[in-house]
Design a protein around this nucleic acid. Structure first.
Lengths: 213, 213
DNA sequence: CGAGAATTTGATGATGATCAAACATAGTGG
DNA sequence: CCACTATGTTTGATCATCATCAAATTCTCG
């Protein structure tokens, strides 16, 4: 989290975000309608955000990994507009918003960091829109795998091998397609030698081909 | 723009955002790759944001009306990540970002306002994701019409009658479908008495039925 | 007013949804 | 720790929605 902040600032920041919260797999960090008063940063594990549309249909709108921040959607109305659900046992830093806002007024490096994080979150959503609006089913799946791969490798994990934390149903919801189509697409990629897929375990065998899907 | 700001603050703010820029229909306010140094607020007219995917396919990611702010996507990397194109002759306020950021540090009401605007922009994108991921073609068209209607009425225009500023192609791109499907859907809504659609002119005849599509 | 752009409508086909059933996996309680 | 049950996954068959291709109008703006 540091970078651009002096030691003194970091100390103040750590004081504010001292609280850590643990969320077990399947439990919610916050729910639609909950009062917004903190931002969160994933410390370990992974979290999905879900919007429930009238009629019960659910859309997974975000997949957050260690280091990712969430909760910004609640700023607008002071109320959270989605559910945040742990995909595995996870822990998050709790950042009380009012205090954090005040600190951002005092420290420009922190302010810049916050704005970049929010801008980043927006760009993530825009990418998601492009994925859903422009790509075919197999392209979407390929992009999700490559996306996860690069995000995991940036976090120090192997880029070509990982274990999905979400179900086929979650993937389908995230990608705007059914779980069956996700499953079929992965099987096809497997048979074509692009990946190795056995259940939740994925190994990417041919990055170039996957990018070219 | 005021509310929550004292007269003195407003004067300072107006000093910063004094510049207005005119953009003719079809012209770009900024382009992908342009250096980011200002936020913009639509003063009059309307603007679309477009992301061009490798392969030339284009996705309309946003539709901005008078009062809407844009440009936040550029904060993250200091470079704009989409094109902003005027749908009609428009004018925008130019808000130099560094100055504005400084002012936000001095005035908490302004800071809160900025954060709410960014949060609002995020929620807009999330709604867009839900629309693309969860709704069928006719539901998407209905939602777009209702969305435009309510946004226009909030701006003091009639809610049941308006003239689209975009082409069928733009609508299709925004909604993740082809222009033909948009056209057919509007024709069907027209025949069913939900709306009256002649070219770019739209009159909503039955809000309830449109919401229930 | 005329030419290029946008829209409408039709015919056809492909992609992905839905329904269904067998199979695998993981989580739980005895 | 194992067996059992829930839940999740795979695969097949069929069908609906929407994309594509095509052609006839209709706008609109220079």
């Amino acid at each position: 989290m540091p970078e651009g902040l002096c030691a003194n600032d970091i100390a103040k920041l750590e004081n504010i975000i001292s609280a850590t919260r643990r969320v077990k797999r399947g439990e919610t960090l916050f729910r639609t309608g909950d009062r917004f008063d903190s931002l969160f940063a994933v410390r370990s594990g992974s979290i999905k955000t879900v919007v429930t549309h009238d009629g019960g249909r659910e859309q997974v709108t975000g997949l957050l990994l260690a280091g990712d921040a969430l909760g910004f959607e609640g700023i607008e109305e002071g109320v959270h507009t989605c559910d945040a659900i742990a995909l595995e046992d996870s822990s998050v830093c709790v950042v009380p918003y009012t205090l954090f806002e005040r600190m951002c007024r005092e420290t420009d490096a922190l302010q810049r960091r916050l704005h970049r994080m929010m801008s980043h979150a927006m760009n993530r959503e825009v990418n998601h829109v492009v994925r859903l609006g422009l790509l075919r089913a197999d392209e979407r799946v390929a992009r999700l795998l490559l996306d996860l791969s690069s995000r995991l490798s940036r976090r120090g994990y192997a880029s070509s091998e990982f274990t999905l934390r979400m179900t086929r149903d979650d993937m389908g919801s995230y990608l705007g397609m059914t779980l069956e189509t996700v499953s079929r697409t992965l099987s096809r990629f497997d048979k074509a030698g692009l990946i190795e897929a056995q259940g939740k375990f994925i190994r990417i065998r041919d990055f170039e081909a996957l990018r070219a899907v």
